[in-house]
Every structure is written in structure tokens, then in C-alpha cells.
Amino acid sequence: MDLVEAGAVRPGRPVRLVLAVACGAVAAVVAWVLASGGAGQGRLTADVHAALPRSGVEHPVTAVLLNFRAFDTMLELAVLLVVAIATGAAGGIGHPGVRRANLCPAPSSPLLDSLVHDLVPFALLVGAYLLWVGAHAPGGAFQAGSVIAAAGVLAHFSPRLRPRVPDRWPTRAVLALGTAAFACAALAALAWTGVYLGYPPAQAGWWILAIESGATVSVAAALYVTFRAVMPADRLGHGED
């Protein structure tokens, strides 16, 4: 019921005015920073390109995300993990009535079934390709994971092909895999080279691929589990969440 109230009540005019002014101010500051030359963009770009040969990958964005600023990326994965845990807990424990209260059975259309049947394997392939191609072209764990999660969301609407989510512990392990792989790699690198998250340059590409593989699985699982927790189950869903 809280949700209904939050949705039905629009914020009053003063609140909206304050929000509009705040958003406008942020936009003005951003525009001013960009117009006044930014914060040393040219120097940072040159630094990244100079260090690229030692990063283990050829794509500068992946090099920054998985090597030069790997700590930030690890925290991003942790944020996704927290989101999945929070929504999972909220969807799994509270409001047991919602599931039964739902109104229409899942529509079982042959069109949707065949679309899901044909599209999901292709989406999985695209996800795997994005993960692999991230080393030397645009792509990477987040893009790959979200494409795979989107395949899961699509399959969710086809009762016959709906993904089965295993019991709690396997699900938790998969959700934590990316963050855990990252943290283990960070500590292993600390033991190996003496630098936290400082992979040995010769094998850095393999370290990055290993971390990204774990991250892809976790991103896909976190996004799909979050969706599943928010989406009210229908009658044909047989109650698993």
C-alpha cells in the first residue's frame, strides 16, 4: 500500500520547483566545467594510451575499467550485489498476498514462445561475444551481463521457457561470484606483485578475462533476480520467486 501511495501522490508544486532548480543548477555546473576545458582530459587520455601496452588489453575503456581503475569497478559490482540482495529480500519475504492477488494468467502465446525460443540462444551468444570482444573493442562484462539478463527477462514471459532459479545458496553464490572473483584477484595480485589489484603485466589479459567472466555471470544474475523480485508472479508461475 505504501507503493500505491507513493505512486498516486505527486509531489507538490514547491517540491517540484526545488527539484527543477536543483537539476538546472547541476546541468549548468556540468556545462560550465565542460565549456571551460574539463578537468585535464587531454592529459588523462595521453596517460591511458601510454600505459595501454602494460594493461593486458587493447581497448582503452576496458583497460581503465578493469586495470587502471579496477577498484571502482569492483565497488560497482558490489553495488549490484547489494541491489540484488535488497530487492530479493523485499520481494521474497514481504507481501505474501501479492502472488495470489494477481489477476490474469500468463498469456501463453505461440508467437512469444517461438520468439523466445529463437532469440534467447542468440542473445546468449551476443553476450558471450561482448565479453570476449571487450579486450580490444567496445564491450565488456556489464554490457554482456545485461544482454544475458535481458534474455532472461524475455524468457520470463514465456511460461514454458521461464528460467528456473535454483535454491538460495546456489543463487547467492552466483550473485557473489563477480565481486568475490574481483576481491580474490585483488588479494592474489597483492601477494604476487605487492600492489593491490596490480596484475603482473605479462598475464594481465588473462586476469582481466577471468574477472570479467565472473562479473558477467553475476551482473546477469543480479539484474535478472532483481527483475524477478519486482515482477509479481502470475498464476502459471507456480509461486517460485
Binding site: 494477481n102 556489464f142 532483481t226 527483475f227
Partner: peptide, 25 residues
Amino acid sequence: AIGAGITGALVLAALRRMQTFGERA
């Protein structure tokens, strides 16, 4: 993938859930 796809699915799912709650309320 994330901004339009997954977030869009989440928003629609939340909307559906709100309607479910609404009918209960």
C-alpha cells in the same frame, strides 16, 4: 542494454506490482 532494456523492464514490473497492490487496496 541497462538504461533502456533492464531498467525499462524493472519500471514496467514495478508498475504492474503497483496495480496489483492497488487492486488489493
